[in-house]
Write a protein that binds this DNA or RNA. Structure first.
Length: 430
RNA sequence: GGUGAGAUACUCAAGUGGCCAACGAGGGCAGACUGUAAAUCUGCUGCGCAAGCUUCGAAGGUUCGAAUCCUUCUCUCACCA
Protein backbone atom coordinates (compact mmCIF):
# COMPACT_ATOMS: atom_id res chain seq x y z
CA UNK A 1 0.00 0.00 0.00
CA UNK A 2 1.34 3.39 -0.99
CA UNK A 3 1.02 5.62 2.03
CA UNK A 4 1.46 8.92 0.20
CA UNK A 5 -0.90 7.97 -2.60
CA UNK A 6 -3.49 6.96 -0.02
CA UNK A 7 -3.31 10.38 1.60
CA UNK A 8 -3.42 12.07 -1.76
CA UNK A 9 -6.73 10.67 -2.96
CA UNK A 10 -8.24 11.25 0.46
CA UNK A 11 -7.39 14.90 0.10
CA UNK A 12 -5.27 14.94 3.22
CA UNK A 13 -1.87 15.72 1.75
CA UNK A 14 -0.80 19.33 2.00
CA UNK A 15 2.94 19.55 1.60
CA UNK A 16 5.65 16.99 1.15
CA UNK A 17 9.39 17.25 0.96
CA UNK A 18 10.94 16.16 -2.35
CA UNK A 19 11.95 12.48 -2.53
CA UNK A 20 9.83 11.59 0.49
CA UNK A 21 7.41 9.46 -1.50
CA UNK A 22 10.18 7.55 -3.22
CA UNK A 23 11.91 6.92 0.06
CA UNK A 24 8.76 5.62 1.73
CA UNK A 25 8.11 3.24 -1.15
CA UNK A 26 11.54 1.72 -0.84
CA UNK A 27 12.01 1.60 2.91
CA UNK A 28 10.09 0.50 5.93
CA UNK A 29 10.30 3.82 7.68
CA UNK A 30 9.95 5.15 11.18
CA UNK A 31 7.98 8.38 11.38
CA UNK A 32 6.51 10.47 14.12
CA UNK A 33 3.90 13.05 14.97
CA UNK A 34 3.88 15.19 18.08
CA UNK A 35 0.83 15.80 20.25
CA UNK A 36 0.51 18.79 22.50
CA UNK A 37 -0.63 18.02 26.03
CA UNK A 38 -2.60 21.23 26.44
CA UNK A 39 -5.45 19.30 28.08
CA UNK A 40 -5.86 15.88 29.63
CA UNK A 41 -7.82 14.76 26.61
CA UNK A 42 -7.34 15.14 22.89
CA UNK A 43 -10.13 16.63 20.86
CA UNK A 44 -11.31 15.75 17.42
CA UNK A 45 -8.84 18.15 15.85
CA UNK A 46 -6.14 15.69 16.88
CA UNK A 47 -8.01 12.93 15.15
CA UNK A 48 -6.43 13.84 11.83
CA UNK A 49 -2.82 13.32 12.93
CA UNK A 50 -3.91 10.16 14.74
CA UNK A 51 -5.47 8.85 11.56
CA UNK A 52 -2.35 9.85 9.70
CA UNK A 53 -0.35 7.60 12.01
CA UNK A 54 -2.92 4.82 11.59
CA UNK A 55 -2.54 4.97 7.82
CA UNK A 56 1.20 5.02 8.31
CA UNK A 57 1.02 1.88 10.41
CA UNK A 58 -1.35 0.19 7.99
CA UNK A 59 1.10 0.88 5.20
CA UNK A 60 3.68 -1.14 7.10
CA UNK A 61 5.76 1.65 8.57
CA UNK A 62 6.68 2.23 12.20
CA UNK A 63 4.71 5.04 13.79
CA UNK A 64 5.85 6.96 16.83
CA UNK A 65 3.46 9.14 18.76
CA UNK A 66 5.34 11.79 20.65
CA UNK A 67 3.70 13.48 23.61
CA UNK A 68 5.14 16.90 24.18
CA UNK A 69 5.78 16.95 27.90
CA UNK A 70 8.71 19.29 27.35
CA UNK A 71 7.52 21.28 24.36
CA UNK A 72 4.19 21.76 26.12
CA UNK A 73 6.12 23.71 28.71
CA UNK A 74 7.36 26.12 26.08
CA UNK A 75 4.30 26.74 23.92
CA UNK A 76 4.09 26.55 20.17
CA UNK A 77 3.54 29.97 18.56
CA UNK A 78 2.31 28.47 15.28
CA UNK A 79 -1.05 29.85 14.34
CA UNK A 80 -1.27 31.83 17.54
CA UNK A 81 -1.58 35.58 17.42
CA UNK A 82 -0.80 36.07 21.07
CA UNK A 83 1.56 34.72 23.66
CA UNK A 84 0.43 31.49 25.24
CA UNK A 85 -0.11 30.84 28.89
CA UNK A 86 2.23 28.32 30.40
CA UNK A 87 0.95 25.24 32.14
CA UNK A 88 2.34 24.18 35.46
CA UNK A 89 4.17 20.91 35.78
CA UNK A 90 1.49 18.99 37.68
CA UNK A 91 -1.15 19.83 35.11
CA UNK A 92 1.20 18.82 32.34
CA UNK A 93 1.94 15.47 33.86
CA UNK A 94 -1.73 14.76 34.20
CA UNK A 95 -2.31 15.82 30.60
CA UNK A 96 0.52 13.69 29.29
CA UNK A 97 -0.95 10.64 31.02
CA UNK A 98 -4.41 11.37 29.63
CA UNK A 99 -3.21 11.87 26.10
CA UNK A 100 -1.11 8.72 26.20
CA UNK A 101 -4.08 6.62 27.27
CA UNK A 102 -6.15 7.92 24.40
CA UNK A 103 -3.55 7.31 21.73
CA UNK A 104 -3.40 3.70 22.83
CA UNK A 105 -6.97 3.23 21.64
CA UNK A 106 -6.17 4.05 18.05
CA UNK A 107 -2.75 2.61 17.40
CA UNK A 108 -1.50 -0.90 17.87
CA UNK A 109 1.31 -0.80 20.40
CA UNK A 110 1.41 -4.55 20.89
CA UNK A 111 4.69 -6.07 19.79
CA UNK A 112 3.27 -9.58 19.79
CA UNK A 113 0.46 -8.92 17.31
CA UNK A 114 2.04 -6.34 15.08
CA UNK A 115 5.09 -6.48 12.89
CA UNK A 116 5.41 -2.75 13.12
CA UNK A 117 4.07 -1.79 16.53
CA UNK A 118 3.59 1.85 17.37
CA UNK A 119 5.74 3.46 20.00
CA UNK A 120 4.96 6.17 22.45
CA UNK A 121 7.57 8.63 23.63
CA UNK A 122 7.58 11.74 25.77
CA UNK A 123 10.13 14.37 24.85
CA UNK A 124 10.42 15.39 28.48
CA UNK A 125 12.39 12.19 29.00
CA UNK A 126 15.34 13.45 26.99
CA UNK A 127 14.83 17.17 27.31
CA UNK A 128 15.09 17.13 31.09
CA UNK A 129 18.69 15.92 30.88
CA UNK A 130 19.91 18.81 28.78
CA UNK A 131 21.44 21.82 30.46
CA UNK A 132 20.96 25.31 29.18
CA UNK A 133 24.58 25.63 28.17
CA UNK A 134 24.50 22.34 26.32
CA UNK A 135 21.39 23.34 24.49
CA UNK A 136 22.68 26.70 23.45
CA UNK A 137 26.02 25.29 22.31
CA UNK A 138 24.89 22.03 20.69
CA UNK A 139 21.56 23.01 19.22
CA UNK A 140 21.39 26.77 18.99
CA UNK A 141 24.77 27.03 17.32
CA UNK A 142 23.60 25.18 14.24
CA UNK A 143 20.85 27.51 13.21
CA UNK A 144 20.95 31.22 12.62
CA UNK A 145 18.47 33.63 14.02
CA UNK A 146 17.94 34.78 10.46
CA UNK A 147 16.74 31.31 9.54
CA UNK A 148 14.46 31.11 12.53
CA UNK A 149 12.98 34.52 11.90
CA UNK A 150 12.04 33.60 8.38
CA UNK A 151 9.45 31.12 9.64
CA UNK A 152 5.87 32.16 9.14
CA UNK A 153 4.95 31.51 12.74
CA UNK A 154 7.62 33.97 13.82
CA UNK A 155 7.20 36.49 11.02
CA UNK A 156 3.55 36.93 11.76
CA UNK A 157 4.30 37.93 15.30
CA UNK A 158 7.11 40.31 14.42
CA UNK A 159 5.00 41.94 11.78
CA UNK A 160 4.33 45.55 12.62
CA UNK A 161 0.63 44.86 12.28
CA UNK A 162 0.71 42.30 15.02
CA UNK A 163 -0.56 43.78 18.21
CA UNK A 164 1.52 41.63 20.47
CA UNK A 165 5.18 40.79 20.49
CA UNK A 166 6.70 37.40 20.96
CA UNK A 167 8.63 36.16 23.94
CA UNK A 168 12.01 34.50 23.66
CA UNK A 169 10.37 31.39 25.06
CA UNK A 170 8.08 30.98 22.11
CA UNK A 171 10.77 32.00 19.69
CA UNK A 172 12.86 29.09 20.94
CA UNK A 173 10.04 26.64 20.45
CA UNK A 174 11.08 25.57 16.98
CA UNK A 175 14.48 24.58 18.31
CA UNK A 176 12.85 22.30 20.84
CA UNK A 177 10.73 20.62 18.26
CA UNK A 178 13.66 20.50 15.88
CA UNK A 179 15.76 18.84 18.52
CA UNK A 180 13.06 16.21 19.09
CA UNK A 181 13.30 15.21 15.48
CA UNK A 182 17.08 15.12 15.69
CA UNK A 183 16.94 13.00 18.83
CA UNK A 184 14.52 10.50 17.31
CA UNK A 185 16.60 10.42 14.14
CA UNK A 186 19.65 9.51 16.17
CA UNK A 187 18.07 7.15 18.68
CA UNK A 188 15.30 5.49 16.73
CA UNK A 189 16.36 6.01 13.15
CA UNK A 190 13.26 8.11 12.65
CA UNK A 191 13.37 9.58 9.17
CA UNK A 192 10.04 11.32 8.85
CA UNK A 193 8.05 13.86 10.77
CA UNK A 194 4.42 14.50 9.97
CA UNK A 195 1.88 16.97 11.26
CA UNK A 196 -0.68 19.55 10.37
CA UNK A 197 0.25 22.10 7.74
CA UNK A 198 0.79 24.70 10.45
CA UNK A 199 3.71 22.57 11.62
CA UNK A 200 5.68 22.81 8.40
CA UNK A 201 8.01 25.47 9.73
CA UNK A 202 8.78 23.57 12.90
CA UNK A 203 9.28 20.34 11.02
CA UNK A 204 11.74 21.82 8.56
CA UNK A 205 13.72 23.27 11.44
CA UNK A 206 14.12 19.64 12.46
CA UNK A 207 15.27 18.41 9.04
CA UNK A 208 17.63 21.38 8.84
CA UNK A 209 19.08 20.56 12.22
CA UNK A 210 19.57 16.95 11.21
CA UNK A 211 21.28 18.06 8.02
CA UNK A 212 23.68 20.43 9.75
CA UNK A 213 24.33 18.56 12.95
CA UNK A 214 24.36 14.98 11.68
CA UNK A 215 24.82 15.50 7.95
CA UNK A 216 21.71 13.37 7.56
CA UNK A 217 18.67 13.56 5.36
CA UNK A 218 15.25 13.45 6.93
CA UNK A 219 11.81 13.82 5.40
CA UNK A 220 8.69 15.80 6.09
CA UNK A 221 5.04 15.59 5.24
CA UNK A 222 2.08 17.64 6.38
CA UNK A 223 -1.63 17.15 6.05
CA UNK A 224 -4.30 19.71 5.39
CA UNK A 225 -5.90 21.42 8.30
CA UNK A 226 -9.56 20.62 8.53
CA UNK A 227 -11.84 23.49 7.71
CA UNK A 228 -15.57 23.85 7.69
CA UNK A 229 -17.48 25.24 4.75
CA UNK A 230 -19.14 27.90 6.87
CA UNK A 231 -15.80 29.16 8.13
CA UNK A 232 -16.31 28.23 11.76
CA UNK A 233 -13.63 26.33 13.54
CA UNK A 234 -13.60 22.58 13.19
CA UNK A 235 -14.16 20.66 16.39
CA UNK A 236 -15.84 23.46 18.28
CA UNK A 237 -19.42 23.74 19.29
CA UNK A 238 -21.13 26.35 21.38
CA UNK A 239 -20.49 24.09 24.34
CA UNK A 240 -16.75 24.06 23.67
CA UNK A 241 -14.40 21.55 22.14
CA UNK A 242 -15.51 18.15 21.01
CA UNK A 243 -13.27 15.86 23.03
CA UNK A 244 -12.30 12.26 22.54
CA UNK A 245 -12.85 11.57 26.22
CA UNK A 246 -16.34 10.19 26.84
CA UNK A 247 -16.47 11.98 30.18
CA UNK A 248 -15.93 15.34 28.56
CA UNK A 249 -18.01 14.85 25.45
CA UNK A 250 -20.56 12.08 25.67
CA UNK A 251 -20.59 9.59 22.78
CA UNK A 252 -24.05 10.87 21.97
CA UNK A 253 -22.82 14.45 21.50
CA UNK A 254 -19.79 13.16 19.68
CA UNK A 255 -21.99 11.30 17.23
CA UNK A 256 -24.23 14.32 16.87
CA UNK A 257 -21.30 16.50 15.95
CA UNK A 258 -20.57 14.38 12.91
CA UNK A 259 -24.20 13.96 12.04
CA UNK A 260 -24.61 17.71 11.89
CA UNK A 261 -21.84 18.20 9.32
CA UNK A 262 -22.85 20.09 6.24
CA UNK A 263 -23.09 18.18 2.96
CA UNK A 264 -20.02 19.85 1.57
CA UNK A 265 -17.94 19.02 4.63
CA UNK A 266 -19.28 15.49 4.80
CA UNK A 267 -17.82 14.67 1.40
CA UNK A 268 -14.40 15.67 2.64
CA UNK A 269 -14.78 14.11 6.07
CA UNK A 270 -15.74 10.68 4.86
CA UNK A 271 -12.40 10.43 3.09
CA UNK A 272 -10.41 11.80 5.95
CA UNK A 273 -12.04 10.30 9.02
CA UNK A 274 -13.02 6.85 7.82
CA UNK A 275 -10.92 4.02 6.46
CA UNK A 276 -13.48 3.04 3.83
CA UNK A 277 -11.98 2.35 0.43
CA UNK A 278 -12.34 4.52 -2.61
CA UNK A 279 -15.17 2.62 -4.32
CA UNK A 280 -17.28 2.49 -1.18
CA UNK A 281 -16.86 6.18 -0.60
CA UNK A 282 -17.67 7.12 -4.17
CA UNK A 283 -20.78 4.99 -4.03
CA UNK A 284 -21.88 6.64 -0.77
CA UNK A 285 -21.33 10.11 -2.17
CA UNK A 286 -23.42 9.28 -5.19
CA UNK A 287 -26.24 7.88 -3.05
CA UNK A 288 -26.07 10.93 -0.86
CA UNK A 289 -26.45 13.31 -3.78
CA UNK A 290 -29.53 11.49 -4.96
CA UNK A 291 -31.25 11.76 -1.61
CA UNK A 292 -29.46 14.40 0.45
CA UNK A 293 -32.15 14.60 3.11
CA UNK A 294 -31.34 11.07 4.21
CA UNK A 295 -27.84 12.24 5.14
CA UNK A 296 -26.23 8.97 4.27
CA UNK A 297 -22.74 10.43 4.46
CA UNK A 298 -23.19 12.08 7.82
CA UNK A 299 -24.62 8.92 9.31
CA UNK A 300 -21.80 6.79 7.96
CA UNK A 301 -19.13 9.18 9.21
CA UNK A 302 -20.81 9.33 12.59
CA UNK A 303 -20.91 5.55 12.75
CA UNK A 304 -17.32 4.95 11.69
CA UNK A 305 -15.77 7.60 13.87
CA UNK A 306 -17.91 6.94 16.93
CA UNK A 307 -17.22 3.20 16.77
CA UNK A 308 -13.53 3.84 16.34
CA UNK A 309 -13.38 6.26 19.24
CA UNK A 310 -15.93 4.95 21.74
CA UNK A 311 -16.77 1.42 20.62
CA UNK A 312 -19.81 -0.21 19.08
CA UNK A 313 -22.00 -0.21 22.16
CA UNK A 314 -21.59 3.50 22.72
CA UNK A 315 -22.46 4.09 19.11
CA UNK A 316 -25.66 2.10 19.38
CA UNK A 317 -26.70 4.01 22.46
CA UNK A 318 -26.02 7.26 20.67
CA UNK A 319 -28.33 6.17 17.86
CA UNK A 320 -31.03 5.20 20.32
CA UNK A 321 -30.74 8.51 22.10
CA UNK A 322 -30.87 10.39 18.81
CA UNK A 323 -34.04 8.63 17.76
CA UNK A 324 -35.81 9.44 20.97
CA UNK A 325 -34.64 13.02 21.18
CA UNK A 326 -35.26 13.96 17.56
CA UNK A 327 -37.93 11.51 16.51
CA UNK A 328 -41.54 12.32 17.10
CA UNK A 329 -41.61 10.92 20.58
CA UNK A 330 -44.25 12.17 23.00
CA UNK A 331 -44.72 12.35 26.72
CA UNK A 332 -46.31 8.93 26.77
CA UNK A 333 -43.37 7.44 24.85
CA UNK A 334 -41.04 8.87 27.43
CA UNK A 335 -43.11 7.56 30.29
CA UNK A 336 -43.11 4.09 28.81
CA UNK A 337 -39.33 3.87 29.10
CA UNK A 338 -37.87 2.06 32.03
CA UNK A 339 -35.50 4.00 34.20
CA UNK A 340 -32.29 2.46 32.87
CA UNK A 341 -33.07 3.10 29.21
CA UNK A 342 -34.18 6.58 30.05
CA UNK A 343 -30.91 7.29 31.82
CA UNK A 344 -28.89 5.86 28.96
CA UNK A 345 -30.64 8.12 26.52
CA UNK A 346 -30.18 11.18 28.62
CA UNK A 347 -26.69 10.40 29.71
CA UNK A 348 -24.70 13.58 29.56
CA UNK A 349 -27.75 15.84 29.74
CA UNK A 350 -27.20 18.30 32.56
CA UNK A 351 -29.41 17.65 35.54
CA UNK A 352 -30.19 18.82 39.01
CA UNK A 353 -31.92 17.35 42.03
CA UNK A 354 -35.14 18.63 43.45
CA UNK A 355 -37.13 17.73 46.59
CA UNK A 356 -40.19 15.60 46.10
CA UNK A 357 -42.44 17.85 48.15
CA UNK A 358 -41.71 20.73 45.79
CA UNK A 359 -43.24 18.74 42.96
CA UNK A 360 -46.08 17.53 45.16
CA UNK A 361 -46.97 21.12 45.93
CA UNK A 362 -46.90 21.96 42.24
CA UNK A 363 -43.86 23.61 40.68
CA UNK A 364 -44.39 26.77 38.70
CA UNK A 365 -42.93 26.60 35.22
CA UNK A 366 -40.80 29.72 35.61
CA UNK A 367 -39.28 28.46 38.84
CA UNK A 368 -38.67 25.05 37.29
CA UNK A 369 -36.47 26.57 34.60
CA UNK A 370 -34.83 29.46 36.42
CA UNK A 371 -34.27 28.25 39.99
CA UNK A 372 -32.75 24.99 38.85
CA UNK A 373 -30.04 26.79 36.91
CA UNK A 374 -31.18 25.58 33.49
CA UNK A 375 -31.87 29.09 32.26
CA UNK A 376 -30.14 32.11 33.67
CA UNK A 377 -32.96 34.27 34.94
CA UNK A 378 -36.70 34.54 35.31
CA UNK A 379 -36.64 37.07 32.52
CA UNK A 380 -35.03 34.59 30.18
CA UNK A 381 -37.67 31.99 30.99
CA UNK A 382 -40.47 34.45 30.31
CA UNK A 383 -38.82 35.41 27.07
CA UNK A 384 -38.50 31.79 26.05
CA UNK A 385 -42.14 31.18 26.95
CA UNK A 386 -43.13 34.05 24.70
CA UNK A 387 -41.15 32.41 21.90
CA UNK A 388 -43.03 29.21 22.49
CA UNK A 389 -39.77 27.37 22.87
CA UNK A 390 -40.31 25.69 26.24
CA UNK A 391 -41.33 22.06 26.52
CA UNK A 392 -41.89 19.74 29.43
CA UNK A 393 -41.55 16.07 28.58
CA UNK A 394 -41.44 16.90 24.88
CA UNK A 395 -44.70 18.86 24.97
CA UNK A 396 -44.88 22.61 24.52
CA UNK A 397 -46.22 24.49 27.51
CA UNK A 398 -47.43 28.01 28.27
CA UNK A 399 -46.58 30.26 31.18
CA UNK A 400 -49.50 28.99 33.28
CA UNK A 401 -48.10 25.47 33.39
CA UNK A 402 -47.48 23.85 36.76
CA UNK A 403 -45.42 20.69 37.11
CA UNK A 404 -46.99 18.06 39.34
CA UNK A 405 -46.34 14.45 40.24
CA UNK A 406 -48.31 13.31 37.21
CA UNK A 407 -45.53 14.69 35.01
CA UNK A 408 -42.90 12.40 36.49
CA UNK A 409 -41.17 9.85 34.29
CA UNK A 410 -40.29 6.62 36.07
CA UNK A 411 -41.74 8.40 39.09
CA UNK A 412 -38.50 10.31 39.35
CA UNK A 413 -37.63 12.55 36.42
CA UNK A 414 -38.95 15.56 34.58
CA UNK A 415 -37.52 16.42 31.18
CA UNK A 416 -37.24 20.12 30.52
CA UNK A 417 -36.45 21.46 27.07
CA UNK A 418 -35.64 24.79 25.52
CA UNK A 419 -35.90 24.82 21.77
CA UNK A 420 -35.18 21.65 19.89
CA UNK A 421 -31.80 20.62 21.12
CA UNK A 422 -31.32 21.90 24.64
CA UNK A 423 -32.37 19.51 27.38
CA UNK A 424 -32.29 19.53 31.15
CA UNK A 425 -33.29 16.89 33.63
CA UNK A 426 -34.91 17.34 37.02
CA UNK A 427 -34.33 14.43 39.37
CA UNK A 428 -36.65 14.06 42.32
CA UNK A 429 -35.10 13.02 45.62
CA UNK A 430 -36.21 12.56 49.20
C1' G B 1 14.28 54.33 32.48
C1' G B 2 11.94 57.30 28.19
C1' U B 3 7.87 57.98 24.53
C1' G B 4 3.22 56.98 22.81
C1' A B 5 -1.44 54.30 22.70
C1' G B 6 -5.16 52.08 25.41
C1' A B 7 -8.89 49.65 29.28
C1' U B 8 -16.85 50.09 27.26
C1' A B 9 -21.40 44.07 27.67
C1' C B 10 -19.50 37.05 25.05
C1' U B 11 -15.90 39.33 21.15
C1' C B 12 -14.73 43.46 18.03
C1' A B 13 -16.18 48.32 18.32
C1' A B 14 -19.08 53.38 18.55
C1' G B 15 -20.17 56.88 22.18
C1' U B 16 -16.43 62.35 24.88
C1' G B 17 -21.94 66.01 30.30
C1' G B 18 -28.56 64.82 29.94
C1' C B 19 -32.28 61.95 24.11
C1' C B 20 -27.38 55.82 27.26
C1' A B 21 -29.00 49.68 29.68
C1' A B 22 -25.37 52.29 26.06
C1' C B 23 -25.06 52.85 17.83
C1' G B 24 -23.17 49.00 14.83
C1' A B 25 -20.97 44.25 13.53
C1' G B 26 -19.91 39.31 14.76
C1' G B 27 -21.25 35.50 17.88
C1' G B 28 -25.09 33.11 20.73
C1' C B 29 -30.35 31.68 21.69
C1' A B 30 -35.25 31.02 19.94
C1' G B 31 -39.45 30.95 16.17
C1' A B 32 -40.91 29.95 10.83
C1' C B 33 -39.06 26.99 6.68
C1' U B 34 -36.25 22.25 6.47
C1' G B 35 -32.90 17.10 6.45
C1' U B 36 -31.64 17.38 13.96
C1' A B 37 -28.79 20.85 7.44
C1' A B 38 -27.41 25.21 4.41
C1' A B 39 -29.60 29.71 2.80
C1' U B 40 -33.44 33.07 4.17
C1' C B 41 -36.97 35.82 7.17
C1' U B 42 -38.48 37.32 12.32
C1' G B 43 -37.70 38.11 17.52
C1' C B 44 -34.45 38.08 21.77
C1' U B 45 -29.47 38.74 23.85
C1' G B 46 -27.54 43.08 32.26
C1' C B 47 -31.34 41.97 36.65
C1' G B 48 -36.57 42.62 37.76
C1' C B 49 -43.80 40.89 36.32
C1' A B 50 -43.34 46.02 37.24
C1' A B 51 -41.97 50.56 39.63
C1' G B 52 -37.20 50.42 39.44
C1' C B 53 -32.14 48.55 40.29
C1' U B 54 -26.96 47.51 39.09
C1' U B 55 -23.32 48.25 34.71
C1' C B 56 -18.63 51.29 30.66
C1' G B 57 -10.53 49.02 34.53
C1' A B 58 -10.59 50.67 40.39
C1' A B 59 -11.36 54.35 44.10
C1' G B 60 -12.52 59.20 45.13
C1' G B 61 -14.26 64.15 43.41
C1' U B 62 -16.98 68.17 40.39
C1' U B 63 -22.28 68.56 38.84
C1' C B 64 -29.27 68.98 39.54
C1' G B 65 -27.20 65.08 36.25
C1' A B 66 -21.10 61.40 34.28
C1' A B 67 -19.28 55.80 30.22
C1' U B 68 -18.24 60.98 29.08
C1' C B 69 -14.96 66.34 33.12
C1' C B 70 -10.97 66.35 37.33
C1' U B 71 -7.55 63.56 40.81
C1' U B 72 -5.11 59.27 42.30
C1' C B 73 -4.33 54.25 41.48
C1' U B 74 -4.16 49.45 38.82
C1' C B 75 -3.37 46.93 34.52
C1' U B 76 -2.32 46.05 29.05
C1' C B 77 0.32 46.99 24.62
C1' A B 78 3.88 49.04 21.12
C1' C B 79 8.32 51.59 20.16
C1' C B 80 13.11 53.65 21.88
C1' A B 81 17.19 53.06 25.33
Amino acid sequence: MNFVEELRWRGMLHDIMPETEEYLLKHKTTGYIGFDPTADSLHIGSLVPIILLMHFQKAGHNPIALVGGATGMVGDPSGKSAERNLLDEATLNKNVAGVKAQLARFLNFDETTSENPAQLVNNYDWMKEISLIEFVRDVGKHLTVNYMMAKDSVKKRLDSEAKTGMSFTEFTYQLFQGYDFYHLYKEKNCMLQMGGSDQWGNITTGTELIRRKAQGKAYALTCKLITKADGSKFGKTAGGNVWLDANRTSPYKFYQYWLNSSDEDAEKYIKIFTFLDKETIEKLIKEHKEAPHLRILQKKIGEEVTVMTHGKEAYENAIKASTILFGKSTASDLKSLDEQTFLDVFDGVPQTEIKREVIENGLNIVAAFADTGFLKSNGEVRRALKENSISVNKEKVKDDCVITTSDLIANKYVLLQRGKKTYFLLKVVG
